[in-house]
Structures are given as structure tokens and as C-alpha cells.
Amino acid sequence: MTTDRIASEVPAKQLHQERLNHLQALEAESLYILREAVAEFARPVMLYSIGKDSSVMLRLAQKAFYPGKIPFPLLHIDTSYKFPEMITFRDEYARAIGAELIVHRNEAAIAGGASPWKLGTQNCCAALKTRSLLDALEQGGFDAAFGGARRDEEKSRAKERVYSFRDAAGQWDPKNQRPELWSLYNSRLRKGESIRVFPLSNWTELDIWLYLYAEQIPIVPLYYAEEREAVIRGGMITLVHPGMQLLPGERPQKMMLRMRSLGCMPCTGAIRSQAETLPQIIEELIGFRRSEREGRAIDHDEEGSMELKKREGYF
């Protein structure tokens, strides 16, 4: 594997850690969390969203159980609105690392024509993501699900635990979370209850990009700037995608664009960018003054909307 890994100029792990860089510290913490969960839960699963955070989480899982294989399946909740590049990447990557992949779709809702135009973004998410996720967890009998959520993403996530307790209905009660001290995580559950485990809790968006770069982790090409066809719809740059219906007066234009986070095609906005490499993305990010979830239509439905989704069981 050819890399331009900066970290290789310095030994990745030094003798007798007198100082530890933040990526090493974060990595050590995440490996510890992944191992704790695998040791204590009966049937864990990793929610794999194909995005950059998932890519980091997957690499950490490879590291945590090395030289063994990842001891749990990956679960992708496919809304049917994901970018084709994501699906190709997902299948190739899972095969390459020898991971077991479960793809779950809420087929009934998809067949019923669930879409953000018909249902509104909130109800669409509720059917294709939240419901679908809860069903998949129940069907698989999973008592723990790893998620790639970070606390720096959004205000309501700032109070999330590393082990986030969900009741038998899969719901999150912000007032009823277990106190979490030191790195002693409480994994005790009653039947039907589950825990979402967030090994990336303490990572920021910049940490993720730096780690992707230092570790040379492959990501979906949509993250890199390229000439892409798009329309500007409601202030959001929407890529022209399969099944898209142009509104009267809309004319697709070619622009240098990239995605800052990956979601469903109709609801995830692109940004104008010239960043074609990881270092360029990082360079751009440092100068960036807009938070990454801003490109997501779902967060702006109403004030505090992420919190409402979480209470219902969304990540």
C-alpha cells in the first residue's frame, strides 16, 4: 500500500510514552471501549453508515481485535435514497476486510413510496431510518449497537454517554441516563433493553479527518471535490441523482463540489470546494466556520430537532 503517511516519519508508537498525541490517546480510549462492549454484551452489532466516521470506527474495530477478525456484524440501514457510490463502496469494503454485513431496509415503507417530498423529512426519517433501525436491532436480537456519533456534532449530543441506555422501546430518555465515571461502563441490561455504544464520543470532525489521513483509511469518493451536476434548492446544493425530479425552472449546473457528510441524496447538501485530497480537505476544514450538520435538512426542521429524533430512537 503506497501512502504518504506523515506519521511514518516518526515511530507511530514511541518507547515509554512521555507524551502521547491526541490521536493516540483517542485511539487507545476507543479500542478500550470497543473491547469492553464485546466482552460484556451478548450480541453486539456495529451500525455502519458508510460515512467517514464509520470508516474510522471500522478501522478501530480492526485494531481492537487484531489479529482476530471483527467479532460482530456490520449493520447498514438502507433507506433506498443513499448515493450509489456509497452502496458500491460499502459492498467492496466489507468484502475486502472480511466483515459480515447486514443490510436492512424498511421494505414496506419503501414500497409504499415513503419519501421526504411525500412525508416531510421528519416522517421520512422516522419510517426509513428510525423504524427500520429499531426493527433490525430487534430482529437480530442485538443488545448493543456501536454507533459513530460524536459529541461535537450537535448540541443535544454533547450530553450523550459513551454507553447510551435505551429502554425496551428503543427510546432515549435524557433524564434517565446512567452516570458514567472514569472508564467504568455499566453494561447491565434487562430483557429488551439495549445500549448504544459510541466509541468516537470524544472525537471531533477534525480528529476524524486527521486520523483518516494518518491511517490512510479509504473513504467514499463523494467526500472529494469534483465537477458535479447540482441544483440549488431551498438554499441547499443538491446533487443531481437517480430518481430526482427537477422542479419547474430548475436547471442543473456543473460545479466543483464535495460532500461534507453523507446521508440520503435528497436531504444531504453538498458544499462548494476545491479540496481533492485529504490534506486539502483538512486545510479547508481548518478555515471552515460552518458546522458539518448544517448541510443536513433534517436538523433544521425545528429548534432542537435532533433531540426529538433521538428520543424516538434515531442516532
Binding site: 504518504d4 479509504p218 472529494y224 485530497t277 486539502q280
Partner: peptide
Amino acid sequence: MSSPNQSREMQQEDLQSQRFRQ
């Protein structure tokens, strides 16, 4: 598996300034 980002980075290697490296 060969990553899609590597070839891009190889091409861009020369363009990266010393300053940004630092």
C-alpha cells in the same frame, strides 16, 4: 483493497506546501 484516495494524493503530493505539512 486499493483506496480511491491514494492515487489522487500521489498526484497532489508535489503541490502540498511545506508550510501546510508543518
